[in-house]
Simulated scan of single mutants.
Amino acid sequence: MAAPSPTPFSRLFNSSVDACPTSLKTATILGPKLKSGETEQAHLRLLTSFKHLKFKASKEPPGLTQQLDNRKLESLTESENGCDLFEDLKHRFLRFKRRKFKENLDHFQNLAQGQAPKFMIIACADSRVCPSIILGFQPGEAFMVRNVANLVPTFESGPSETNAALEFAVNSLKVENILVIGHSCCGGIRALMSMEDEVDSSSFIRSWVVVGKNARLITKSAASNLSFDQQCRHCEKGPEYKSVAKK
């Protein structure tokens, strides 16, 4: 009998993670189209390029040569730092595979067959606010969508990723609970509160946060005596903050 085809999770977590150091450095400097096996040749082109650059610069005043050398060192440092970041991600992935995935293989194999989360979470895309960490969700417990300022557009606003996620969560996954998670110091809410009545159509952010214009109007009315920062705080908390604002 033929072996069963790998599940989506096994395909994901059995995939190889490429090593970073030399290939990433050269690809960062020379461009993304670098093919495998060209690392040494790429380094040769890189060194030749820098020698040529220094030769040309030597015809100029010493100050210019020093500036070019400094820029060269900065570029190499940035490339190495970028490499360190991806090397760290690689180790995080391998650590997850070793400590979480393999130790809970049955659970992940069950999840590969389907999901039945009890919660849908609509949260802000802010990197500082992770619902899984804050509420302790494990894989399979929460269907999650994140957007700027954790906004939910009205039906009349037309199709959006958030509305599509809501439709799928309610109609297909049959979630029992929907949570909208806001947070303080939200840049999206600040953009909403600072925008003019005429939305700048060239800004993707403003074109998105305008779906919260009613919240902005309510906040401006209820918290007109407060500073702008306090108004943003008021809007982040929602209507239940109205009584606090009037005190």
Rank of each mutant, 00 (worst) to 15 (best):
E161C: 11
R98P: 01
V175A: 04
T7Q: 07
A223K: 11
M120C: 05
A223V: 12
F108D: 05
P62D: 08
S132V: 08
A3F: 13
A27F: 01
V180C: 11
E236Y: 00
Q138C: 05
R92P: 00
L151F: 07
Q231D: 05
C20I: 06
K242Y: 02
S79V: 14
P153T: 08
E38C: 05
C235H: 05
W208S: 12
A123R: 01
Q66S: 09
G82C: 03
R71H: 12
K97M: 07
T154S: 15
A191F: 02
D126A: 00
S5M: 07
A2G: 07
M1D: 10
N214S: 10
A245W: 08
G212H: 02
F137Y: 15
N70L: 12
S36A: 12
S227D: 10
Q138R: 08
N14R: 14
M195L: 09
L94G: 04
N70Q: 15
K54N: 12
E198L: 06
H234D: 07
I121Y: 03
S132I: 06
P32C: 12
A116V: 11
S16E: 14
N81L: 13
I122D: 04
G140V: 04
V209S: 06
K102Y: 07
T162F: 05
Q230V: 01
N104F: 02
C232Q: 00
T219R: 12
L151G: 03
G82N: 09
A27M: 11
F9S: 15
R11P: 00
L34M: 14
R190W: 02
R146N: 06
T154I: 06
G182I: 00
P139Y: 02
E198G: 02
R128C: 00
F93N: 10
A116T: 15
A222W: 03
L44G: 04
P32E: 14
L44S: 08
N177L: 02
G82M: 04
R233G: 00
N147S: 03
R11G: 08
S10T: 13
G182P: 01
K118I: 01
S207H: 05
P139E: 11
N147R: 02
M193V: 05
R92Y: 09
P239L: 15
G63E: 12
H183T: 01
R216P: 03
F9R: 08
G187Q: 01
Q109Y: 03
S172E: 12
A164H: 08
L47P: 01
L53F: 04
R146W: 09
A222R: 15
L135G: 02
G188S: 03
L44K: 10
T77A: 09
P21W: 03
V152Q: 08
L73R: 13
R11M: 12
S58N: 14
K54T: 10
L73M: 13
T154M: 13
V210S: 14
H183V: 00
K72V: 10
L94M: 08
I178H: 02
I134R: 07
P117Y: 02
G187Y: 00
T28K: 06
G182C: 01
I121N: 03
N104Q: 13
